[in-house]
Amino acid sequence: MLRYSLKRLLSLLVSLAVASLVIFFVVEVAPGDPASFMLGVNAQPDTLAALRAELGLDLPKWQRYLAWVGGMLTGDFGTSYTYRTPVAQMIADRLWVSLPLALYALTLSTLIAFPAGIYAAARRGKPGDMAVMGATQLGVALPNFWFAMMMVLVFAINLRWFSAGGFAGWQDGLLPGLKSLTLPAISLALPQAAILARVMRSALLDILGEDFMRTARAKGLTRRQALWRHGVRNALIPVLTIIGLQFSFLLAGAIIIEQVFYLPGLGRLVFRAISSRDLIVVESVVMLLVFAVIVVNFAVDLAYAAVDPRLRTRT
């Protein structure tokens, strides 16, 4: 188990290093000098040079890369070109919206998908299965941001159960914050839940055809007992893969959904940074998103080992 975890950890570090290189050098090829962009066309050469020195833009590329990575490791993401405030602070503020939103959606999606998938697999070919499959077919086809607009139309504008947008913040406790994230989380979660339920169902159906399921029935387990005791845990292996992948979709989706609900999250930050060419902010947000995805997939790899004893002893 320890050997397996170490191996995964090593691969995680390599992925992070390569990802940071890719991001840094893609942004490096960007045309235009941030310093002249910040000061405008009429800037004096000496003020320009001073700003470039202040931002570290006059150093060789590899030194700047090392400084950037080194800074991130110590929590220093640099200074925003446009706002002249630490990027780390700006990101931290927004992260308190985007991350809870993604996690909220992931939880909802899993809570909906597991029972739906198991229910459909247990009633394969029967009306219950058909209904679930039909609903998921529709759910998979829903663009989450459009679904979000429809939710706003129905639940905020017509029924007035929720506010149409904005974020209540966490300062008044958990509930007001959660409430303002509920509609966004549902909009994010339902399409993903549809995918996950389909994966759960087909993974279970595969497992139901396995020899050991017949063995379980020969022992005297009912169909339902066999499904729960022997099917679900084995089906978790493919399902975990999808959950890991979904996290990156949810993070990306959260950025889009924030636009629908006017949430002050990473999405707002990054789109404003793009339009003002605040590349250091873009760079840092992208690195953070990629970091989150890689770390979640590392966690999924560890979860595999918890589910599947074959991984623990091999390699």
């Binding site: 992925s15 390569v18 990802a19 890719v22 992948l245 990156s248 979709f249 993070l251 990306a252 950025i255 889009i256 998103l289 990629v290 995805v293 890689i294 997939n297």
Partner: peptide, 8 residues
Amino acid sequence: LIFAFPSL
């Protein structure tokens, strides 16, 4: 590595 970079 590419899987860590969603399209968005």
